[in-house]
C-alpha cells in the first residue's frame, strides 16, 4: 500500500515528528511504500541542517535524511511555510527538497492513505 505522511510540527518541541518517523519506518518494514512525507507549518523546521541536538539525544533531522537515502522516501518541505520560518535551500538538510503545496495535494490524490501528525 502507498502511504503519504504529513508532519505539521517542528522537531523536539512536539512528539509529532517522532511519531511520523516511527510510523514511516514501521510502514516500510512491513512492506508498504511511503511515497512522500510532506512537512508543513512548523514541520518545515525538521529540514534544518543547522540542527544540533545534544549527543545523547536522537538526531531527528539526520534520521529523516537517512530514511530518505535508504528507502528513497521523498521528503518535501512546503515553500511558503519554509520561507516564513527561514528554511531555504542553503540550510536544507540532505534528502529534503523545497516545493509547493501542490505536492501535498498530489500525495492526497496518488497515495492510498494519507496520515497526518501534528498538534
Amino acid at each position: 500500500m502507498k502511504f503519504g505522511i504529513v508532519v505539521n510540527e517542528g522537531p523536539y518541541q512536539h512528539q509529532a515528528s517522532d511519531s511520523a518517523y516511527l510510523f514511516t519506518k514501521a510502514a516500510i518494514e512491513n512492506g508498504h511504500e511511503v511515497w512522500r512525507v510532506f512537512f508543513y507549518h512548523d514541520g518545515v523546521n525538521n529540514a534544518s541542517k543547522l540542527t544540533e541536538p545534544p549527543q545523547d539525544d536522537r538526531h531527528i533531522v539526520n534520521r529523516w535524511s537517512k530514511l530518505a537515502e535508504e528507502h528513497k522516501v521523498d521528503l518535501v518541505v512546503c515553500v511558503a511555510a519554509a520561507l516564513r520560518r527561514g528554511i531555504k535551500d542553503e540550510n536544507l538538510a540532505q534528502g529534503f527538497r523545497i516545493s509547493g503545496l501542490g505536492q501535498l495535494v498530489e500525495a492526497g490524490i496518488k497515495c492510498d492513505r494519507l496520515v497526518t501528525f501534528g498538534d
Partner: peptide
C-alpha cells in the same frame, strides 16, 4: 505497536487525525 498502527491505517479506507 507501530506496526499495528500501520495495519490500522491500511485496513481503514481513510484516517483522520
Amino acid at each position: 505497536d507501530y506496526a499495528g498502527f500501520v495495519e490500522l491505517a491500511a485496513s481503514n479506507k481513510t484516517c483522520q487525525s
